[in-house]
């Protein structure tokens, strides 16, 4: 039996975890979970559990990374060895480096780095439990942690991945769908303007399927943005 033979969505549109095509997994957000950090956030998304913490702005060391006109965003994405079923070899690897870079590029679109010349803002993303879509969870949690740290930004970044399973485009792939699906399209979106700050694709999607996945991601980003705002209001009160 090959990957294409795994049935992950039935004729009624029910996925293996009971969701419909456009549904996202349950999300829980908590801010201020790392007291020693300037800002932090934890995000439970399905079985994913990610903690993001932000330090800075601080002096940029080593000096060679300093930029005269703006701050440097130093993002580090790491998966704990116990975060996956098979032990994940600790340490920085090619995948971590790639995800760190795309996360940094996405966040640089919104952070007002020019306000802190010659300084560094450090973002640490630690995956405690992984279940597909960790880069999306990490990017979203990092955006929350930056806001919690008081780092000025033009918007929040919300990231979500849609994909194709058994020829059907669905939103927010879980582990089985990510492993056995035909395509995966993670995106990072600014919810207030609809602008795109992060886009990757794995597998094959036709133009119409791409549009469908795009629309799912945009719609899900708005829902997740509401969840983020609720979590922030729960922590700091709705107003004075």
């Amino acid at each position: 039996m090959g990957y294409g033979d795994v049935q992950m969505i039935d004729e009624n549109g029910n996925r293996v975890d009971g969701r419909k095509a456009g549904d996202i997994r349950p999300i829980e957000i908590e801010l201020g979970v790392v007291p020693v950090a300037d800002g932090s956030a934890s995000m439970r998304w399905g079985t994913n559990y990610v903690i993001a913490s932000v330090y800075g702005p601080m002096e940029a060391h080593p000096r060679k990374i300093q930029r005269q006109e703006r701050a440097v965003l130093d993002v580090r994405y790491n998966m704990a060895p116990f975060s996956t079923t098979d032990r994940f070899r600790p340490g920085f690897n090619r995948r971590s480096r790639e995800i760190s870079k795309v996360t940094s590029d996405a966040l640089e679109s919104v952070v007002l780095l020019e306000l802190y010349p010659r300084s560094k803002i450090r973002v640490e993303i630690e995956v405690i439990c992984a279940e597909a879509g960790t880069r999306c969870v990490g990017l979203t949690a990092a955006s929350l942690a930056l806001a919690d740290a008081g780092i000025p930004m033009t918007d929040m970044v919300v990231s979500v991945a849609s994909g194709k399973i058994n020829g059907i485009v669905v939103c927010d792939l879980n582990k089985e769908e990510d492993n056995y699906g035909a395509a995966d399209l993670p995106m990072g979106v600014l919810p207030n303007t609809g602008e795109l700050v992060f886009l990757q694709m794995d597998g094959d999607l036709s133009p119409s399927e791409f549009q469908e996945a795009w629309d799912y991601n945009m719609e899900a980003a708005l829902k997740i943005h509401v969840i983020m705002k609720e979590a922030i209001a729960n922590k700091y009160g709705g107003g004075q």
Partner: peptide
């Protein structure tokens, strides 16, 4: 390519 979903929020 449409970019539906810009928030009215």
């Amino acid at each position: 390519m449409s970019s539906s979903g810009a928030s009215d929020g």
